[in-house]
Every structure is written in structure tokens, then in C-alpha cells.
Design a protein around this nucleic acid. Structure first.
Lengths: 336, 336
DNA sequence: ATGAAAGCGCTAACAT
DNA sequence: ATGTTAGCGCTTTCAT
């Protein structure tokens, strides 16, 4: 390339990377030759030299969960505004795969990592090790005992809204259907559920706390279990929308009227939440805001790291989500 | 690292890359030192040296479309079996963004690229240029006039199954709701629809051919349009499940019974297809098989490229999908 | 303003 | 079996 243009590699570099002084004429010549040859800078070599890749890595527990894909979309947009690209990895809900992906992102010298850890404890070691080497922010979920930035929603506050709305709709007893307590989301949401239901004096039987998996199938199975008990709760609070979708569907199959007999709520506000029959009342996560904060924290961390400064103290940013009321719950006026 | 272990960098390389002869003792020593130092090979430098990254790039039109995410999942699994990683990019349904992503994948020297082009013609230049430099296979959708491998389903055969099933359920007229004719999927599906409906002697009015977007919203809007006409078709054939989800939902809102008054079919068999009310009859795409073929083609192309051989002739692999019959259509016995 | 040359971390060829 | 060394393509002093 340099030969073709009859200049030195240094000049080519100066033109193509936009650093240093080059005469307009040289600039034009290099540009034109590059065009003709279809030449592109080799970003591997550039990354090796600069130890910067303008790429951010993101690891999500499951790429088939619509909540995470919409979060990915928000992050991509936020990153696009900074001229950075996203390298997305799927942890397949497996801390081991997750650890491999994190290691590989480190090895590829991404400039920072955004991770929603798949497991509340098992993800810990890998996340902490990664954070020791690179700017890292946890998104949505977090791992206990780690020392990193985090951005997500205030699950406790969200559950307060959910319970209050259900209570206003006449519910005096409630069930909680979530995943196993292996991630922070379910933990926090269950804690918030218990606390507020307690404050409201609602009945919460232990056999109504059903924990397994963030899937539609589990939501369906949970209803089968509930239906097998002697009493049905007035409300079923689900830890995410996929579960809630399964729950409403199974209620229909079991002839349990929603929201007439049982009120149902979800969490996340994925697109399909409004499509189910009945449309799901759920907690809307402010994804764009979450993404923007995460990208901001990453940029800040990268900057202070480049300056050789010690790591900033960690920020934990909890945004308060809002309740989206649809048809799977009763509004206050419907109270008996 | 080499100094810490008291060996040469070459030995370290031999141990850590698993090539060449090293005595067991050395091997142990290097391994242990690497462990202690938390040392990881710099895969940027390795990639620069080997001009191989063990990474495949994938570009999809929209990461929020569940069909593509499940395809991504299948590709990741297939790739995992070969020890390769996936670098996923979202084209945001925009050929320009897509072109940038492709260029950036080339610059990062991925070993191959899997792309589902977002546009049937506008994606052409970028896809072809990319294919001239790297092994590339188009998945699901393809761009006309390009010379690359392709794996997808036989849309024509799929539509034949759909129409025949609808016909058996008593439909004598049909509408088609799809995206604009800017991608091969809709083009092929509409062509298949027209051909088979013609062969069956079904009525297809031009104002029943509604083309806009692969979204739930468009499905809903399309029904509003149909409902405004003087006659309703016996069946609505949708170009994908998102549209079909919108269609069935809007039918419910308009008091149009599905499948009693109108039969509805989707395409892709995304997870939510079975969850809608009524559950959607749709065409199941064999994703795992599609992904496996794509990965195989990529590996073959990479191998022959490494051998300096001229490019193999391109393969176009069309798999025949299968119809999944659920509740949004009438089975033959329900025929009047 | 431009060029020459060193070096980022790795691996393969060659030498021992 | 192990070490030495050149060079992947880039950027960046340091000369000119």
C-alpha cells in the first residue's frame, strides 16, 4: 500500500489514523490509493500496537430471553454514539461457559466488559478476576461479594409497586413464581415481595413460593402445582415475563380466570407481554437508561485506567422502574 | 512470563499453544508459572501472527427478532463444537449499518462470516465485497446477484404445504401479509403463495396482498385494513410469526374468529407462536440443521482458502421445512 | 512535512 | 528438547 502510493508506511498510518501532520496533497494521494486497492487498516495489528480495540464485550445469560436481547439493543445504540462496537457473547446460563467467554474477551483486549452474570455466586470468581483486569460493569443482575460497578433496577421498590397494585385490586394472598435463588434478580424480587406482602398483611404460604427457571414452561408447570393444592392464592407474582406468560396460559388451560379468579404480574415488559391473553401487567425496565449509564461508567473507568489513576470507587446505580398496568390484574375500582 | 519460568518465549508458546515437542517437566513448570501469574496468551498478537482468530462473525438484520436469536443460538452451538467463538453484530435492519459491521469483521480478521442480509438488493455490494475477501455464507435470506454459499429453507415448498393445509381446511380465498419486497424471504414466500394458491384455484385479490414490515404492529395494522374492505378472505398467510401474532391479536380485537371465520398461518415457529391465543399454525425452520450446514460450508471454504486453492463453486442448500399444525387453522375434518 | 526504524506479543523456522 | 531470531502490520519516536 505504502509502495503503491509512493510514500512511507508512517505517512499512510498518519493519514488513515488521522493523527499527526500530513500535507493535503499527500493526504489525498494516500486516500485515493487506499480506495483503489480496497485497502483497510488491519485492526488486529492496530490493536496490538495501541492495546485498544474500540470494542466492548457483553455477556448475557441467555440470548433467547427477549429481555436480554432488548437490553443488548439498547447497549448497542449507546455504544454506537461513542464509535464503539459490541462483541456479544451468550453464556448459555452456564457459569463455566460464561467464564470462558469472559476470559476470551480479556484475551481479545476489549476496552471494557458489560456482563449480566448468570449465577449469583458461581459467577463470582470469573467476574471478579475479569474486573481486576478491565473496566467492567454488571448489568441487571449482579454477583454478591464482587467489587464492580453495577446498573440495574431497584427490585425492592418494583415489588412494592406490584404488591400495592395487587392489594388495591383486592388481593389478600399471593404466590411467587421465580427461578431458583441462584441469581440476584430472583433473590431481590422475592425479598421485596415478602417484605411488602408482609407489611400489607397478605397471606403468603410457603408452598406458594415456587422456584425453578426463567422459562414459559416453568410458569405452566407452576400453575399445575398450585392448582393441585387445596387453596389458590388471589395473585401470582412472577419474577419475569416469560414465567408470567406460562402462568397465564396455564391458567386458561386449567379454567382459572385471569384476572377474575387470580391476578397475575410479570417483570421486564418484554414485547410479548402486551400480546398475551390477557395482556400482562408488568414492571417496565428502563433499558435505554440502564444501557446509557453502563456505557458512561465504562467510559469513565477506561479513562481513569488510562490515566494510571487508581480505580474509582464503585458505583451501584439502581433505577426505579415503573408499573405497566394491563389486563392481567384488577384495577382499584374492581375491588370487592 | 518466560523469564519467571526461566525458559524461552518459544517454549512458553509451544506449551500454551500445544504445538511442538516439550518435555513433561518443562510443560509443568510453564503451566504452573502461568497459573501463578494469571497469565493469558494475548490473542491479538496470536491473531496477528497466525492470521487466524478462531472467531466467526455473524450479522443478523435484527437481534430482537426471536427467529434470528434462536438461529444465533444454533450457530453458537455448532461453532462451539469446533472450538470457535461467535462475534455477533446487529445490522438494525439497515444496509449501511450492515456494511459497516461487515467491514469491521473483515478488519478484525474473523475466519469467516455468516450473514442474513437485511436487504435483497441494497445489501449486495457489501456482501459481495466481503465474500471476495473471506469465507462467507448467507443464512436464511440471501441477496440476488451475489456469488456466495447460502443455506436456508425452501420457501416455495413451505408455501405449498401451507396453502394445501389451508385448502384442506376449507379456505378458497387467501390474503398474504408480509414485509416490503426488499428481502428474499418475503419475495420467495409471496411467490410460493401466489403459485400454489393459483394452482389450487384460490381467490387472491390484489388488495389482500399487504406488505410492510416484520413486526407485530404491522400484523395488527394489516387486519385493520382487511377489515375495512368489503370482503374478508378465508385465510391470512403471514410471512413470519411476528406478523401472524399481530394478525391473530387484531382479529380478536375486531371480533373476527380464528380459525372459525379466518384461518391464520405464520412462518418460523418462534417460541411465542405456540403461546398466542389461538396457538399458531406455522412453518418450522430446521435451525440446528441450517446452522450446522453453514458452519460446515464455512470450514470447507476456510480450508480450501488456506490451501491456496481457487474458491469452490458455491453451494445453495435449501432445506424443506415442516408445517406445525396448531389452533389457528382448521384441520381437514372441519371442512364444510 | 516526511521517512527510517523500533517494538507491541506471538509463532515458526532454524540452530543448537 | 530447547533457545535464538525474524517478522506479522501497525504506530510512534527520532531524524531529517
Amino acid at each position: 500500500m505504502a509502495r503503491h502510493a509512493g510514500v512511507s508506511t508512517a505517512t499512510v498510518s498518519r493519514v488513515l489514523s488521522g493523527r499527526g501532520q500530513v500535507s493535503p496533497e499527500m493526504r489525498r494521494r494516500v486516500r485515493r490509493t487506499a480506495e483503489e486497492l480496497g485497502y483497510q487498516v488491519n485492526s488486529i495489528a492496530r490493536a496490538l500496537r495501541n492495546s485498544r480495540t474500540d470494542t466492548v464485550g457483553m455477556v448475557v445469560p441467555s440470548i433467547t430471553n427477549p429481555f436480554f436481547t432488548s437490553l443488548v439493543e439498547s447497549v448497542e445504540h449507546a455504544l454506537g454514539r461513542e464509535g464503539k462496537e459490541l462483541f456479544l457473547c451468550d453464556a448459555q446460563s452456564d457459569p463455566e461457559v460464561e467464564a470462558r467467554r469472559l476470559a476470551s474477551l480479556v484475551a481479545r483486549s476489549v476496552d471494557g466488559i458489560i456482563v449480566s452474570p448468570s449465577h449469583g455466586t458461581a459467577s463470582g470468581a470469573a467476574v471478579q478476576e475479569t474486573a481486576d483486569r478491565l473496566p467492567l460493569v454488571q448489568l441487571d443482575r449482579f454477583v454478591g461479594g464482587t467489587d464492580t460497578d453495577w446498573v440495574g433496577v431497584d427490585d425492592i421498590a418494583a415489588m412494592r409497586q406490584v404488591i400495592d397494585h395487587l392489594y388495591a385490586g383486592g388481593a389478600r394472598s399471593a404466590s411467587f413464581v421465580g427461578s431458583r435463588l441462584t441469581n440476584s434478580s430472583t433473590e431481590q424480587r422475592l425479598a421485596g415481595f415478602r417484605r411488602r406482602a408482609g407489611e400489607r398483611g397478605m397471606t403468603v404460604r410457603e408452598e406458594w413460593i415456587l422456584l425453578d427457571d426463567y422459562t414459559v414452561e416453568w410458569g405452566e408447570a407452576a400453575v399445575a402445582r398450585l392448582a393441585g393444592l387445596d387453596t389458590l392464592p388471589d395473585a401470582i407474582v412472577c419474577a419475569d415475563d416469560l414465567i408470567a406468560l406460562g402462568v397465564t396460559r396455564a391458567c386458561r388451560a386449567h379454567g382459572i380466570d385471569v384476572p377474575g379468579r387470580v391476578q397475575v404480574t410479570g417483570f421486564d415488559n418484554i414485547e410479548f407481554a402486551r400480546l398475551s391473553e390477557p395482556a400482562l401487567t408488568t414492571v417496565d425496565q428502563p433499558r435505554d437508561r440502564i444501557a446509557a449509564e453502563a456505557v458512561r461508567l465504562l467510559a469513565a473507568a477506561a479513562e481513569s485506567a488510562a490515566g494510571g489513576a487508581p480505580r474509582d470507587p464503585c458505583a451501584h446505580i439502581a433505577l426505579v422502574p415503573s408499573l405497566v398496568i394491563r389486563d392481567s390484574t384488577r384495577s382499584a375500582e374492581g375491588t370487592s
